[in-house]
């Protein structure tokens, strides 16, 4: 009687391992073959196929991808867009979350709903009106590196869109987290004479560091990977972020897949680094605010 369930669980365990190994392999095949292809010259894979044994392994694709994709330049563009966006998103959403979670006010829920609902609109649906709004908004050329005379075509427009779009989600996560911080902390501060802004900056914000780090990781990955807004709002190839570098390497008819694989590896690197650096916060952050504790 004791043995039977043990045997059964051993079998189910074995099955689980076989299943997991199989799934892991299935998921790894595309990634590994892309990495493998990235190290091989195009002429070779073209002739012998992607899964053939290597005749020559080279870093040339990475070098070419970097230079032909103009990645020094596009990476700078990406950082110009992503970093201010994240700073603004986290600032706006934490102030908003602070207001709706720490103070009881009639429109708390309505406001929170409004902010979250903004996330549900697909970008493709509202890009036309946004496009026209940016086009109609005058913007001095001195404040941008283009000469369009309007916000359209400037990286600032992309930053604005990102901030507007992401603030809702971050507000939602942050407010849920802030609700878990005991009310007594705020009350004690109030008794000691701390103003609202002091409560925010010196009590609540330090306690929110884990969730802020988690959000920063997520947002970095999302904004870094954005291609849609960059292409729609930035007409000049010069202004576009690193995601366009991969697109640049595909020709009208002919595309060197090995080169593109190498470019994808390079482009994926920074998100991986950010993720690894903030991994613990990221995983901790996922469950933050999942329950009120």
């Amino acid at each position: 009687m004791v043995k039977r369930p043990a045997r059964r669980s051993r079998w189910s365990r074995a099955f689980l391992y076989v299943f997991l190994t199989f799934m892991a392999l299935v998921w790894l095949v595309p990634v590994v073959s892309a990495i493998y292809a990235a190290f091989r010259p195009y002429a070779e894979t073209q002739k012998y196929g992607i899964f053939s044994l290597p005749k020559a392994l080279t870093l040339q694709n990475f070098k070419d991808a970097w230079t032909q994709g103009n990645m020094t330049h596009t990476f700078r563009n990406t950082m110009f867009i992503v970093i201010p966006s994240i700073v603004l998103i986290l600032f706006f959403s934490s102030t908003m979350a602070f207001a709706v979670s720490r103070f009881s006010w009639r429109f708390n829920v309505a406001l929170l709903l409004l902010f979250t609902a903004g996330n549900l609109l697909p970008a493709q649906v509202i890009f036309q009106p946004l496009f026209q709004m940016f086009k109609a908004t005058p913007w001095p050329d001195l404040l941008s590196d283009t000469d369009t005379g309007s916000l359209l075509g400037t990286k600032i427009a992309v930053i604005i869109v990102h901030v507007a779009f992401q603030t809702g989600f971050c507000t939602f996560v942050l407010s849920n987290y802030m609700k878990t911080i005991p009310k007594e902390l705020g009350e004690a501060a109030l008794v000691d004479g701390a103003s609202v802004s002091r409560q925010f900056f010196q009590i609540i914000m330090p306690l929110c560091r884990p969730v802020l780090a988690a959000l920063a990781t997520l947002e970095f990955t999302w904004l870094y990977n954005d291609f849609f807004w960059a292409v729609v709002l930035l007409n000049q190839g010069d202004e576009r972020p690193i995601t366009s570098s991969i697109a640049n390497l595909g020709g009208q008819f002919f595309s060197n897949d090995n080169l593109i694989a190498a470019a994808s590896m390079i482009v994926a690197m920074p998100t991986l680094i950010v993720y690894l650096a903030l991994q613990r916060q990221f995983i901790g952050g996922l469950t933050l605010g999942a329950n009120k504790g």
Partner: peptide, 27 residues
């Protein structure tokens, strides 16, 4: 990242408006 950003401000404002990306592109 901040250093990259500064560099971006510095070069973009001066160069990109007036020349082709060839200056930045590998060249």
């Amino acid at each position: 990242a901040g250093a990259g950003l500064l560099a971006a401000c510095g070069s973009d404002d001066k160069d990109s408006g007036s020349t082709t990306p060839a200056t930045d592109a590998a060249g």
